[in-house]
Write a protein that binds this DNA or RNA. Structure first.
Lengths: 361, 361
DNA sequence: TTGTAGGCGTTATCAA
DNA sequence: TTGATAACGCCTACAA
């Protein structure tokens, strides 16, 4: 391994000078800096991240922790975030939380909070408060945070507006009995559920129904215990077999993966989409465009989401340069300074309704 | 941050004793070790990875570098590998190489080769020789390595056998004019292409054609410059519009993503699958099961692939414990010892032909 | 069985 | 403008 000492020797300067020069410190004379850069290049020198991180607490790495890397939406999202991180000159590393709380904690303790200058986290089981403890004061941006009073910055998908648009679209094309696949009717009674992704999406649906003057009952909701392909496919059978849903002519599935599996279930029974039942999904994964029939969906602009998330994160990361990072007692009083407000920001990713064959009548 | 000194103080022992105790060194008395473990637990102590890595060269992290994290096959593969790594008690981190050579080099230089005890790499642009230099002596297992004379252990998909099975299946169900979508007819003339994934899959097709006594010409191959959804969809138009392929009644697409996009292209033109044209894919991604019609495919057993890859990798990682790691001059002479042969191993992942609607006649 | 001490490669504080 | 020097937190001979 070639270390900084080797470069220093080759360039005829001290290690300290090499360190300054390679990081662009203006105190080093241009000629010296150039000489050092050339020596480093020739020796294929690369700064040791462990040593740098140990000494300075900064690694240049941004972590992304996401649930289930083998599902279309999370994987497209982490890819987009990953690319945006690289674009800003940081090294992205992705980790899969796989749903278990222990897993999430392990990831945060073992690598993310230690190695990373900041992290993008899609919370599953861990609460905001627990996250605060696990973050060790490192900046973190949450994706679709469900906490009623947030601790961290977050970027959300347009759950309410998007879902409302989906339901409005079904109404617009003439659907009389619309069924929302995912939530149960009494879900909103639970405060914690109400602020979750499914709760917010359901709220959007209810708003749309109300705006259109549609009466709502439990017949408008088909609950799903797990948002997985198999139960989603079977949900189609349940819909077709139950008297409650027999005249359903429009379905809004809370994710594209649910929608595509549900559509497969309808195909199993020979039900035609959109002729017999029109269908709308949510997410806008690539798959939705290539399905037969292609799926109308609420597409989340993942590039926009990534940009907003990384903007928020890097603001905090760079603000941390001066402070200790672990002691947020900086200046709670100076609320006049708007640059980095202490209160967590909450942004929403851009989205659009993409009309495709599944609602073309 | 709570360090080893804090634990030592709390337990009333020295730092060294803490280090030994927490890593299960038998020299420490059971009672002492237990006391130390409890103190560590109470303080929420976590060993600093940077410090450990700097001092011992080991981090407990295994890296996975894969091309395009937002495609179904690579994402399912990295998820499977990631889970297997976690199962063995290591921390997996995933990075996306995004195809560019600079990107791959950057990833290897900046984080993988520095931070990781070993890595799983799906090579794109970088040659085996370059990899050797970039690996800094760290163990590495390649996935679908295309090098004719390999430098590293690798696990491959069953390109030849799988493709042969796909073509045989199409012949079995009665297809008379089979078209393979992906490669061009003259591809095998190029030595480098011949050992690539597409080359090996094509070789399998040719073998099947030969075994079945089918004459082969360029009319049996529909080349694809990029294996992306859009060109794949358009390839279907090309097939339908060209006199060369007009009577095609069976298609083998070299990946599921190609197959699903191609199928979508056929649907655009109102061609029925399997009635007019039967279709087989390769990979066995989740999506293939939920497509309408569901896709017959050569499914690679990703759990088996992950298990084999990590077995190979951890063998080398643990073998490195004694040696310097960067100096592989250990014992090239003792070829009698079969435990860790110096010559790279090449394994093949288990696979199966999954028959579904797209070939059901 | 446990403690002492030195160093991994870098950065930051001083002094020159 | 540059150089010496002391940490950062951990591991590991070696000494006790």
């Amino acid at each position: 391994m070639v270390t900084m000492s080797d470069v220093a020797k080759a360039a005829g300067v001290s290690r300290a000078t090499v360190s300054y020069a390679l990081r662009g410190d203006p105190r080093i004379a241009a000629a010296t800096a150039e000489k050092i850069r050339q020596a480093a290049q020739k020796l294929h020198y690369n700064a040791n991240i462990s040593a740098r991180s140990l000494r300075s607490g900064r690694s240049g790495i941004i972590g992304v922790a996401i649930y289930e890397l083998d599902r279309p939406y999370p994987s497209e999202m982490s890819a987009a975030v990953s690319r945006e991180i690289a674009r800003r000159g940081y090294q992205p590393i992705v980790q899969q939380t796989s749903g278990s709380k222990d897993d999430e904690i392990m990831i945060l303790q073992k690598v993310t909070s230690q190695l990373c200058d900041g992290m993008i986290f899609s919370p599953g089981q861990v609460s905001d408060e627990e996250l605060r403890a696990l973050s060790h004061g490192k900046p973190m941006v949450l994706l679709d945070d469900i906490s009623p009073d947030p601790v961290f910055d977050s970027v959300n998908t347009a759950c309410e507006d998007g879902s409302a648009a989906a339901v409005h679209h079904l109404i617009d094309i003439g659907c009389k009995h619309i069924v929302v696949v995912g939530p149960s009717y009494d879900m909103l009674l639970d405060d914690k559920m109400a602020s979750s992704v499914v709760g917010r999406r359901m709220t959007g649906c209810l708003r749309a129904f109300e705006e259109a003057g549609v009466d709502v009952s439990s017949r408008n909701f088909l609950p799903l215990r797990h948002w997985d392909p198999i139960p989603s496919r079977e949900a189609a059978y349940r819909l077709l077999d139950s008297d409650d849903y027999r005249d359903a002519d429009g379905v809004f599935c809370l994710t594209d993966t649910i929608a595509i599996s549900f559509m497969r279930g309808l195909a199993d029974r020979g039900v035609r989409v959109p002729d017999d039942i029109a269908l709308v999904g949510f997410d806008g994964v690539t798959e939705s465009e290539y399905a037969v029939p292609s799926l109308t969906t609420i597409r989340t602009d993942l590039d926009d989401l990534a940009r907003k998330a990384i903007d928020l994160l890097l603001d905090r990361v760079n603000a941390n340069v001066g402070g200790t990072g672990s002691d947020p007692s900086a200046d709670t009083a100076s609320d006049g300074d708007l640059a980095f407000p202490d209160s967590p920001q909450r942004l929403t990713a851009a989205w659009e309704l993409v009309e495709r064959e599944s609602t073309r009548r």
